[in-house]
């Protein structure tokens, strides 16, 4: 589904990703962990197509298509979804209107018929229940006046509604209490399927207790430095990222000798 090869990305003149490789198959859940400043959020933004995140080398293939040539909205229509670490408040734009406009814009781009408001509301109600979100949030402006937890749950709610093929969750767990964390994980698990893949970016192992990953990667200094199964996350939790750094130093020493 997603193949990233030797990806180099510059942001504001500074190289952040330095030869990242990643291969996510359909139906898999990959967790990406790593210390602050490793380039985790950059990876999310680059996949979603944010301006100012320039790919200088390497490529990103999504179902065989070069993702970097597509505009952000075209990526969304192709099935890429980024749950933001900091969801943006958009005063004056009604949440329901926004969601329906987004869904129908995607459907239109894919050559599918638009969804009428009756069916849309039915779908909304169905998805709201899973995340235990209040109806009234729908009548407010996008993310405006939402609590931190509500914003994060709203991201997952949007994901449930838009049904992407690849969902990237950028620190969706940060700032959540344990109850909200469980709700978010439930929302994600409900969407897991053989056709849908997830890239879960997180600092902490805790989220992975609830969303069990197939593969765990450690991203440090712009590269994947270690990959393993879910036990790798536990080891990281136990030893911290310095453990990885030391192991890398040992490896490099071994290589150079």
């Amino acid at each position: 589904m997603l193949t990233i090869e030797n990806l180099h990305v510059r942001v504001a003149g500074k190289e952040i990703l330095k030869g990242l490789n990643l291969n996510v198959k359909a139906g898999e859940v990959h967790a990406i962990m790593g210390p602050n400043g490793a380039g985790k959020s950059t990876l999310g933004y680059v996949l979603a197509g944010r301006d100012g995140y320039d790919v200088t080398e390497g490529r990103i293939l999504f179902n065989g298509e070069d993702l970097t040539t597509l505009e952000p909205d075209a990526r969304a229509a192709a099935g890429v979804f980024l749950a933001f670490q900091y969801p943006v408040e958009i005063p004056g734009v009604n949440n329901t209107y926004f969601l329906r406009a987004a869904l129908n814009a995607q459907r239109k781009a894919r050559g599918e018929p638009e969804m009428d408001s009756m069916n849309f509301l039915k779908l909304v109600r169905e998805k709201l229940k899973v995340l235990h979100l209040k109806d009234e949030l729908l009548n407010r402006a996008v993310n405006e006046g939402f609590s931190g937890g509500e914003k994060k749950r709203n991201e997952i709610f949007q994901m449930a509604l838009l049904e992407p093929k690849l969902a990237i969750l950028d620190e969706t767990d940060s700032g959540l209490d344990i109850d909200a964390l469980k709700l978010v994980a439930e929302g994600v698990n409900a969407l897991r399927s053989a056709q849908r893949s997830f890239v879960v970016i997180t600092h902490y192992q805790r989220l992975l207790d609830y969303i069990v990953p197939d593969v765990v990667h450690v991203l440090a200094d712009g590269r994947i430095v270690q990959s393993g199964d879910k036990d790798l996350a536990l080891k990281l939790e136990e030893h911290g990222y310095t453990w990885i750094r030391e192991r890398r130093r040992e490896e490099q020493a071994a290589l150079s000798s």
């Binding site: 944010r50 301006d51 952000p72 933001f84 943006v88 958009i90 734009v93 987004a102 869904l103």
Partner: peptide, 21 residues
């Protein structure tokens, strides 16, 4: 960017933001 990442074409996203303003 947030709006476009949800699938709204740029012109529509701009229109909505301008209108909201």
């Amino acid at each position: 960017f947030y709006m476009r990442s949800r699938g709204l074409p740029e012109t529509l996203a701009r229109q909505l933001l301008t209108r909201a303003f």
